[in-house]
């Protein structure tokens, strides 16, 4: 694996008696699209906030782009684009004025390139045609796009996005996914947190799962979704198949059979050779949902009584 963009060791944050982030050892290699999953209140946002120096860790350490955070924030953050806890803007100003002021507020970049930087960022997120309306008149989706434009303003090496598709319609979500994949292809590491499994499944190459403040799992999506050693097939004559595959069938739901084995082609040939028609056949893979449900608790928005 190549160098790491984010490394944390024993990173912990307490708010009073609540442990929001509990000894997290996270490693995000350069060039990946990393998805941070977890139920509400599992500490995803607090973790992102610590990486950005907004929240100070109680103990442990974090390194971003090779420099310790938050000590070297002034050197690290200009190379990081962030969307934290939803977009925010000065509501009485236009989107363009917001980006210009934000650009002017921090270091780096020449003044005369500002207009170009702002226009490019707006174009990338599909807001090139915005007028002088103040941001408070924007829809949720437009605000979200503006927030992402602000994150892209400085051509960052690392994008830290918290729920980037919040408020976007299906077309907007699709555009955003294409945009993030395109940015990733040019070398930007993308880290996004989400509670939407499908979102992460469709976009990310590596997944971290948080539960009750702990990072309970971090792995490549491909290996999480490795075949389970079972094959699922659909047939109009399940009884014939059941008789033929006696002992290998693990489960049956109407015309859907789950069979032990690694090679669907071999199984297909066997069934068709014996005159059993097959309408669908594939390796069984664990869905990300199953993986997540497997390793996480109920989240903190559920309070059940103990009887």
């Amino acid at each position: 694996m190549s160098e790491s963009v984010i490394t944390t060791t024993g990173l912990t944050k307490r708010f009073g008696r609540v442990v929001a982030v509990d000894h997290v050892d996270l490693d995000v290699p350069a060039g990946v699209r990393f998805g941070l999953l977890g139920p509400n209140g599992s500490g995803k946002t607090t973790l992102v906030r610590m990486l950005l120096g907004l929240v100070h860790a109680t103990s442990g350490s974090a390194t971003v782009l090779g420099e310790p955070m938050p000590r070297r924030a002034a050197a690290v953050l200009p190379q990081v684009g962030a969307l934290v806890e939803g977009p925010a803007a000065w509501g009485h100003l236009s989107g363009r004025a917001n980006l210009r002021l934000l650009d002017a507020a921090g270091p780096g970049g020449r003044r005369r390139d500002r207009r170009r930087r702002v226009d490019e960022a707006l174009e990338r997120v599909g807001l090139a045609g915005i007028d002088r309306r103040p941001v408070k008149a924007y829809s949720l989706g437009m605000r979200q796009r503006l927030g992402i434009a602000a994150a892209l303003l400085r051509a960052p090496r690392l994008l830290l996005l918290d729920e980037p598709t919040n408020g976007l319609d299906p077309r907007g979500i699709h555009e955003m996914r294409d945009l993030l994949v395109a940015l990733n292809a040019t070398g930007t590491t993308v880290v996004l947190s989400s509670h939407l499994l499908t979102e992460v499944e469709a976009l990310c190459t590596r997944v971290g799962i948080m539960d009750a403040g702990r990072l309970v799992l971090a792995d490549d999506l491909a290996s999480l979704r490795a075949p389970t050693g079972r094959i699922r097939l659909r047939t109009p004559s399940p009884d014939a198949a059941l008789a033929l595959l006696d002992g290998r069938v693990e489960a049956r739901e109407a015309d859907l059979l789950t069979v032990r084995g690694d090679d669907p082609a071999e199984l297909n040939a066997l069934l068709v050779g014996a005159g059993v028609p097959v309408t669908a056949i594939d390796r069984e893979r664990r869905s990300l949902e199953e993986v997540v449900l497997d390793v996480t608790g109920s989240g903190n928005d559920r309070f059940e009584g103990h009887r």
Binding site: A74, L77, P78, A82, E85, P87, A88, A89, W90
Partner: peptide, 11 residues
């Protein structure tokens, strides 16, 4: 307004 965090990470 939430703009504080974006100013601080600008940085």
């Amino acid at each position: 307004a939430g703009t504080l965090r974006y100013l601080l990470v600008r940085p």
